[in-house]
Write a protein that binds this DNA or RNA. Structure first.
Lengths: 201, 201
DNA sequence: GACTCGGCTGACCATCCGTTCAATCCTCTG
DNA sequence: CAGAGGATTGAACGGATGGTCAGCCGAGTC
């Protein structure tokens, strides 16, 4: 078989869909636009994926697998796993926002892994203890995902060229600085929230 | 004049559009769906806003104004400003992702305000110094915006009921804990990035 | 060579879309 | 009361969309 990596028409369609769905959103992308971008007829797209929704699900599963693979290779922090997501960054961001089942599953898995990783670190003394480990893991993941979702905005402010590696390093370093040395020098804001979980806002 | 607050048809259409655009995205929302949700005819929507694109811009400007108003009332931290965004949370998140001019403007303004606020705090000793103030301000804003963009995911993991105030408090408290006491106990990760700005990843 | 079968196409269809437009309705003004 | 002018409607149109289908093509099988 033509196992020449991935050049089968089906894969080309999927890749084209990933790019267009990510750039413009699923609803704003027509089946014909995908087919044209992949260099095939519109009928073939439906032939392979049944429907536009089927194509979307195939993209979801592909991204889910790719992220799992990336996460498997780089266990420990999830910073490297996020690098693996770069090509499908915008697609993933939209999926997260839309609450796709694949995106939801992925988010859950990442939080679970992170919570375990933080607990390990806490035991080893590398990580400070927390009063609410679940909330901390969730918030931490959301923060790590923020540059992924808001990457265009962050990149624009930290240097014109998007996808510039310098931008990612600057943002990562600034983040690590806050998470290592802290940002606030005293507890004035923190204490305002402590024990105020019953508060109504 | 019928100054009964905001119940004019034009405002009802805008509110309906805000909700539907936020829930499903602009492209996935038809003018007819907006008109039905607002209880008017499709023609009236176009009569008032010229086109669907005009409606989208009107929504953008409305959100921009609302956020500026919210930010003006609560200067200092931007946590309160984000509360003002709750009703249009999903709309804003999509606009940020799509790089709408209004969203871009808003992001820039927030970062500028935050950078100034952090600089003030640094001078007063409330905020720790930074090696890259611009990157820190940008990353900080991205982090504060993360629960807004990923609110559905965060809410799901921190308690079934979305829009539950307890969720927001838990997440906020966990975040403040990390930003006050720090997360990592040593510099192992931070030092890996220090002075490595020429690194290629 | 005859046959098969999956990849692949182009024409076609019903539907929905954004938009236009003439005609109504409502309310205010004189 | 007459009329003017904006708000509002419903029908209509051209175009694009998602989906179906009959059939072509080319490689493998007997």
């Amino acid at each position: 078989m033509r196992s020449v990596s991935d050049l089968t028409a089906r894969a080309r369609i999927r890749d084209a869909a990933l790019a267009l769905f990510g750039a413009d959103g699923v609803a704003a992308t027509s089946v014909r636009a995908v087919s044209a971008s992949a260099g095939v007829s519109a009928g073939l797209v439906l032939h392979h994926f049944g429907s536009k929704e089927g194509l979307r699900q195939a993209c979801d599963e592909y991204v889910l697998d790719a992220m799992r693979e990336g996460a498997r290779l780089a266990d420990g922090d999830l910073a490297d796993a996020l690098d693996a997501a770069a090509p499908v960054r915008r697609y993933l961001a939209r999926a997260l926002l839309d609450g796709t089942t694949a995106a939801t599953t992925l988010f859950d898995e990442i939080v679970a892994r992170t919570e375990a990783w933080l607990a390990d670190g806490e035991r080893d003394g590398r990580i400070r203890p927390s009063s609410d480990p679940r909330a901390r893991a969730t918030t931490y993941v959301a923060w790590m995902l923020a540059p992924l979702v808001l990457g265009d905005q962050v990149g624009r402010l930290l240097g014109g060229d998007p996808a510039d590696s310098v931008v990612a390093v600057r943002a990562a370093r600034a983040g690590l600085e806050m998470l290592t040395r802290g940002l606030f020098t005293d507890d004035r804001w923190l204490s305002a929230y402590s024990g105020a979980l019953g508060e109504n806002r």
